Amino acid sequence: METALVLAGSAIGAGIAVATGIGAGIGQGYAAGKGAEAVGNQPEAQGDIIKTMLLGAAVAESSAIYGLVVAIILLFANPLMKLL
């Protein structure tokens, strides 16, 4: 019974961890839209705007990657199973 509870909790935790990708996707879409708007307003600053936007996208994507790593650990290399 304990094993089933640990596996169920791990599956729920993995689902919540993967849900971090939703926030990252929304943030990146918002940043890309604002970056395109800024380039439209000031085309001469395109290089600086794109550099800043790409840096922000990389930072936002890192949280989604961390969520994916946590989900993979919970599903395939579950450290909680060793406690039983």
Score class of each variant (00 low, 15 high):
1 M>V: 12
2 E>H: 10
2 E>C: 09
3 T>F: 14
3 T>L: 14
3 T>P: 03
4 A>G: 14
4 A>K: 10
4 A>P: 07
7 L>A: 05
8 A>S: 12
8 A>T: 12
8 A>H: 09
9 G>P: 02
9 G>L: 05
10 S>N: 09
12 I>G: 10
13 G>Y: 04
13 G>H: 03
14 A>P: 00
14 A>L: 04
17 A>D: 06
17 A>S: 15
18 V>H: 07
18 V>A: 14
19 A>C: 14
20 T>S: 12
21 G>Y: 02
22 I>E: 02
22 I>C: 04
25 G>E: 11
26 I>R: 07
27 G>K: 00
27 G>R: 03
31 A>Y: 01
32 A>G: 05
32 A>I: 14
33 G>I: 04
34 K>V: 07
35 G>N: 04
35 G>V: 01
37 E>Q: 12
37 E>P: 03
37 E>R: 15
38 A>W: 04
39 V>M: 11
39 V>W: 04
41 N>D: 13
42 Q>R: 12
45 A>Y: 05
46 Q>L: 14
46 Q>Y: 11
46 Q>P: 09
46 Q>H: 10
46 Q>F: 13
46 Q>S: 14
46 Q>D: 12
48 D>G: 11
51 K>F: 14
51 K>G: 10
53 M>G: 04
53 M>A: 10
53 M>P: 02
55 L>I: 12
55 L>C: 09
56 G>S: 08
56 G>I: 01
56 G>W: 00
57 A>D: 05
57 A>C: 13
58 A>K: 15
58 A>T: 13
59 V>I: 15
59 V>S: 05
60 A>C: 12
61 E>P: 00
61 E>N: 08
62 S>N: 08
63 S>T: 11
63 S>K: 05
64 A>Q: 02
64 A>W: 00
65 I>C: 11
65 I>G: 08
67 G>W: 03
68 L>F: 07
70 V>R: 00
72 I>K: 09
75 L>Q: 02
75 L>P: 00
76 F>H: 05
78 N>Q: 06
78 N>L: 06
79 P>V: 07
79 P>N: 08
80 L>A: 15
81 M>L: 15
83 L>M: 15
83 L>E: 11
83 L>V: 15
84 L>V: 13
